[in-house]
Design a protein around this nucleic acid. Structure first.
Lengths: 340, 340
DNA sequence: CGACATAATGCAAGCCTTGACATTTAATTT
DNA sequence: AAATTAAATGTCAAGGCTTGCATTATGTCG
């Protein structure tokens, strides 16, 4: 007899329902192992007593938490937000809950967050991109925590992933741009230091230039952090040089919208005098004026399938084969023939 | 001697370092209760063995998980994404991790998710808005899980909250619009059924109309789900009636941008012929053309302070007094004098 | 009706850490 | 040097659930 009606335990429920704790546990976890009559009685008791299993005890006994962690650069970027939403929705369908941590694009914070989520009992981890200290992969290995890479696809990395080929997508876009007569090119890129996606996108452009016989020096690159204002500032810098580029690639749509707005402010006609291309196809791209030509990334599908793969990895203990999704070009109103 | 180098336990570390488990535990949790020499030895052992505390055992013994849950309608909406980002950043500073669940604006899913996050060991919960089945509050009470409401502020609700007064903000905006001569008003609102924020915003407009002696029937209201397309469709509906409204309030910026684009498509000059007002002040509002007049919501500060308050509630066991933040009007280019 | 197969349930051993309390060691004072 | 106090460390029970295995109930078939 405790003092103030403590939260009931499995034991209490079992006693009240006149069964063993094992039976109550099974009612909750494997209902069809229990006879219907018994099950109904137990479930009613559970409801009546307002029983809710103790998380710690459960995690300890079962050695899993039904929790999957996602570690992303930031939630503010619509691209991750949408993928994450789909990821969580799919996780829910399978009875898993999502832990989220963000890194602000900083490798040190990412490493810390990975350890934190593992310590918090994440059964598996969603990571963005391949590039990180090998030590981290060793850690995950040692802890036996399955993980999966998204927002990138690189068969050579030889790890489970659900993503798309950043290089190929940007390569296709650059081909198209070059075919429209553009020769003086520029790229406003996210910082490439520890960002394999940004680097792959840049490489895609360079390879298309190689192929068209354009000197790589013709690509003027500015790296800048995420943000509309940063895109605008980078664009201003770009326009200071002579001769000006006629086509400006952007590492993502947010930078592209910044560039686009700045072009308007500088009275540069888009796409008549200058073309601007984004990457990601977030809502902003459609709403921008003129509507942005960009690369469509299947965020939602990526999130959904990543969730499915991770759930399988947790439940089956097996490793999933990499899945490549298609990123497609979306031609709107910011790309045109190079000016004469 | 186990077979394949199992993950070391506290016991293993203690033995290896030649101390008791309690000392190792203290090194990890309360370092300054342990002599420096001992601590260093222990911490080295921890590092060498790659020890990481077992989450379940820890949760069980400590009766807390250092995890706080956030339950929001959707991550795709930039408004929540930004607030959530700030929330998580602040949580991290205090050593807490964030669990996220989304409800798609559905009360039944919200109830389920609240139970799920509690079952997953959330030490406290962040909720959006006040309105929900009283049963849920009883459940949280019974489970002893502290919670806090954000994105709304209502002193009468008498519960811990960090938010702003939706009604007052919209009231201020409506006053301004009416002062500019607008009399035929419209509102494209999110669905108000189980959404106290949307309802409060609508009431704010109605109260301003009362005050100005405008009949409440002069406000034509359309409710629609979230989304640019929905905003556009609602706007089209609105324009079918005669006489047309001269000012269209929107429940959020996304709907407003949809309306704005549709106005352009219908060749209705904004703001010369018609004014459009949003709510939230997300990035989209600044980038839209013309830039959107809207209500600025202090997302980041709200998220940050909500995190601080919840951490205090978890650690101190005390209830926090409600905090009201200011939502301010941002006048850009979609509001002007009513046409003659 | 007895033997046997199968379904349902019970038993009890972990799982690993925390924290109250006890004990030992070190430092300080008299 | 003894007495006192504070700091450091140790002991050990408790915490609630899962799950392999054992046992009992139920049903079927010859």
């Amino acid at each position: 007899m405790k003092a103030h009606r403590p939260t009931p335990t499995l034991h209490d429920v079992a006693k009240a329902a006149g069964v063993s704790t094992a039976t109550v546990s099974r009612c909750l976890n494997f209902p069809d192992q229990v006879a219907v009559r018994t099950r109904e009685r137990v479930m009613n008791t559970v409801r009546d007593m307002g029983y809710s299993p103790n998380f710690g005890a459960r995690a300890m006994a079962a050695r899993r938490t039904n929790t999957i962690g996602a570690i992303i650069p930031t939630m503010e970027n619509a691209i991750f937000a949408r993928g994450l939403q789909a990821f969580q929705e799919e996780l829910r369908l399978h009875g898993f809950t999502m832990l989220v941590a963000s890194t602000s694009y900083r490798p040190d914070i990412e490493a810390e967050q990975i350890r934190t989520l593992v310590a918090r009992g994440a059964d598996a981890l969603l990571l963005i991109g391949h590039e990180r200290d090998p030590e981290i992969y060793r850690f995950l290995e040692a802890q036996g925590v399955p993980w999966l890479v998204t927002w990138a696809f690189d068969l050579d990395a030889g790890c489970p992933s659900v993503g798309f080929d950043n290089r190929a997508a940007m390569y296709a876009m650059a081909q198209k741009v070059i075919a429209l007569g553009h020769r003086r090119l520029a790229l406003i890129s996210a910082e490439t230091a520890m960002n394999d996606r940004a680097r792959a996108r840049k490489i895609g452009i360079l390879e298309a230039m190689d192929e068209a016989g354009i000197d790589r020096d013709e690509l003027h690159v500015i790296e800048t952090p995420y943000g509309i204002e940063n895109g605008a500032a980078a664009f201003t810098d770009l326009m200071r040089q002579a001769p000006r580029p006629t086509a400006v690639f952007c590492g993502n749509d947010v930078l592209a919208v910044g560039a686009l707005r700045q072009a308007q402010a500088l009275h540069i006609a888009v796409p008549a005098d200058l073309s601007i291309m984004g990457f990601d196809d977030i809502e902003l791209a459609r709403v921008a004026f003129p509507a942005l030509t960009t690369v469509h990334v299947p965020h939602r599908e990526m999130g959904r399938r990543a969730a499915q793969a991770l759930v399988r990895m947790v439940q089956g203990g097996i490793t999933e084969a990499p899945v490549e999704l298609a990123a497609t070009l979306v031609f709107r109103d910011t790309l045109a023939q190079a000016p004469a």
